[in-house]
Amino acid sequence: MTGQTPPPARAPDQLPSLPALAPLPALAPLPALASIVAVARFQINRLLTPPRLALAAIGAAFPTAVLLAATKARGSALDTDLGAILLYALVPEAVCMLGLLVTICPVVADELERGTWVHIAVRPGGRRALLLGTWLAAVLWTGAVALFALLLALSVGVIENGLILLGPFSLLVCLSCIGRAALFSLPAVIIPKRALVASVGVALVVEYLAGLIPAVVNQLTVSLRLRTLLVRFMDWRQNMPIELQLLVDDRPPWAQVAAVLILTVVFLAVAVAIVEWRQFPPSEES
């Protein structure tokens, strides 16, 4: 009987209907956007647990602790340039990188582990919403932690004229989170179960190794843009040795911002295409 059509066990129209239900509400005006926001909210709620909050607090306090230690070792407040270098390494680089690694990398692996992937994958646009919503949550969460870390570091007064760094560094933090969250979403969807290790590899090889090669390849990195913006904001370029000038871009700040946004769109588009097309056999779920 293989291939035959089983008749319905009973004709639905001959059975008593269910009690009258309230009419089904209309869909959201922008369902795709609504889904992304819903995922972002849900993911942020998942992050609001005591261990995660404690981790975030440590991350936020870490730059200040390092700056205080540097000040103590030096015996005086850090001058603005040295403070900016340290602050750049600590906040837009270290805090943002670490925050993003723990928030965006598990985007698929966590859902598979919790047994929630399949619930989301069968929703219209669910996979896309999961990726973009988690990206948004990662940017907001890590951005908030990093901005708090920045504020804290500048408010303790260990950097001379430190408050002038607040605006430029806030922009660097935002760009770092936006661009790198998109970058780390690629390993997260390509090799979900090894995403963290792969993302650390990507950070080291792409952002720090390729980003420091004065060739076309570094144009594709977020670190080149952030470095260039830092040099521009601090007006260091004219005093830089020529070999170091090769490590920054000549184009104006708006072009650096645009480049990060373009890279973000490209990374996310590729990640969305992969996650939409990806299949997980039942054995891989939970």
């Binding site: 509400p25 209309a26 869909l27 959201a28 369902p31 609504a34 889904s35 819903a38 995922v39 849900f42 709620n45 998942r46 647990t49 582990e113 919790r114 047994g115 929630t116 399949v118 619930h119 989301i120 929703r123 219209p124 646009g125 669910g126 919403a129 039942p282 779920e285 939970s286």
Partner: peptide
């Protein structure tokens, strides 16, 4: 699905609401 739901932190209310929103409904709906 057959697999158990091991989502830890959410409540059934939050979970079902989340899934319905993923189906494109407004938060109120």
């Amino acid at each position: 699905p057959a697999s158990d739901l091991t989502e830890r932190s959410a409540t059934p209310r939050e979970w079902v609401r989340y899934l319905v929103q993923l189906s494109g409904f407004t938060p109120a709906a």
